[in-house]
Amino acid sequence: MDNFDKRIKQIAKDENWEIPNEIDNNISKLLKNIEEPKTVRKRPLKVAILVASLSILTITTAFAIENIIEYFNYNKNSEYISSKEELETFGSVVSLTSKDKGIEFKLDNISVDDNYINIFYTIKGEKSIDEYYKDHSTGEKHKEAKYANPFINLEVDKIKLKNLVMQEYEAVYTSENELKGMQRINVSKYNIKNNFNLKIYTNEIFMQKGEWTVSTNIDKSKAITETRKYNVNKNIEIKNKEYSVTEEKEFDVTHYLNIDKVIISPFGNEIVVKEKVDADFTKLDAIAPIHLDSKFALVDENNNYLEIVGKGSIGHDSTTNGVTNSFEFKLKDKD
């Protein structure tokens, strides 16, 4: 069969056929599994083998298209901050279902990087949406689709992620009893491994109490290749005055800040800041720990102000008066 293989390649050379290496290798593999014919008619045999090889490559390519997000086919006016192409490139199809109280929750797709977990799902009820939300006293009908999204809880490797912020969310009704939704959840303050188990669950859908849970293994290593992560760990002190409505007076307060990390990733850019305050802070109003967002700006090395487009992942520890905030910002230049 080796001689036959050489003859086929010589035919290609004589007639100036250019055969890519991948197809060339496939020809050799195919020829090993067939008997050597007594005669070789150049063109028909060569064309047949090339067609067979091209067919194999076409099938392989088709299977390589893993992640098609149906949601965008239904919501043509989506304003989601991440593009459909990015979400499909760094995501995967899940297709896991949980059903309770006559309502089915199906996790369709998921896209993850170091800053965000983007989930896409379909919710289908046995009754119409109008029936689930119907107020018999007023005749009011269903909620706007966006606000019919359930509150999602997450566990990573069996550890619950606390103080999650659904920073961006959308939904669209696709029939009288079905909704397709999406949520972008900020996880930048957590250090999540590249490969992990993710559990997604909720206890209320369409105002119905129940238990819906799906669990899947996630590999975010593809997104990590496009991510730049900087562990800054820089401490800063800021002294200023805070006014307490309760005490009706001002207090001198020192804010102890730690610039924890900066993450530039496919689904957004985040700076994570930890903050503690001195003892006098305990006399202030509860809202004071989250005032940082109104008292700073981000500037690059060329003195360009960077737009802060969102804040999330708020976590307050009442015992230390500490808080962890993350701030999403836009870059003037990716480099």
Results as ranks from 00 to 15, higher is better:
Y133V: 03
F63P: 04
K146N: 11
E170L: 00
F120R: 07
I152Y: 07
E131M: 01
Y132I: 06
K134F: 01
I103E: 03
L57R: 15
I152A: 09
K106E: 14
G125R: 12
Q167C: 14
K146L: 07
Y147F: 14
A64D: 15
S92H: 03
E126I: 06
Y116K: 13
V51L: 10
K106H: 10
Y133Q: 03
G125P: 14
S175Y: 10
A62G: 15
E178A: 06
T138H: 00
G139V: 00
S98R: 02
E104S: 14
L54N: 15
N77K: 12
D114T: 00
I65C: 05
L154E: 09
I59R: 06
I103L: 01
N153F: 01
E178L: 01
E104L: 01
E126M: 04
E140L: 02
Y173V: 09
K162N: 12
K180R: 09
S111T: 13
N118K: 10
N153R: 11
S98T: 07
E88P: 02
Y133M: 04
V112T: 14
K101C: 02
T61N: 15
L96V: 05
V172N: 07
I65T: 08
F151T: 09
A148W: 08
I152G: 11
L50E: 14
E178K: 10
G139M: 00
H136C: 00
N118Q: 08
K143N: 07
N109G: 01
V156C: 12
I159Q: 13
A64Q: 14
S111E: 05
V187N: 03
E131D: 15
V187C: 03
S78H: 03
S95I: 05
K101W: 13
T61I: 10
I110S: 08
I68H: 13
I110M: 10
N118V: 10
I69Q: 02
E144H: 11
K162R: 11
I103N: 09
A171K: 13
I117R: 06
D135G: 00
A52V: 11
D130S: 07
E126V: 14
Y132C: 12
V165W: 10
M182F: 11
I159H: 12
T174F: 00
I129F: 11
N163Q: 06
N67F: 00
L96T: 13
S55L: 12
K160N: 04
F63C: 08
Y74W: 09
S82D: 13
E155Y: 10
A171E: 12
A52P: 05
M166C: 12
I119T: 08
L54I: 09
L54W: 14
A148Y: 04
T89E: 15
L164D: 09
K106I: 11
L57I: 14
A145T: 12
N115L: 00
S92E: 13
E176C: 01
V172R: 08
V93F: 08
Y147I: 13
S111N: 07
L50C: 09
S128K: 13
S78R: 05
G181I: 08
E140V: 02
A171I: 08
F72A: 09
S92W: 04
I81P: 09
K124I: 12
L164W: 15
E155C: 05
S175A: 12
Y80Q: 07
T60E: 14
T60G: 13
F63R: 07
N115V: 03
K124N: 15
S53H: 03
T174E: 01
N149G: 02
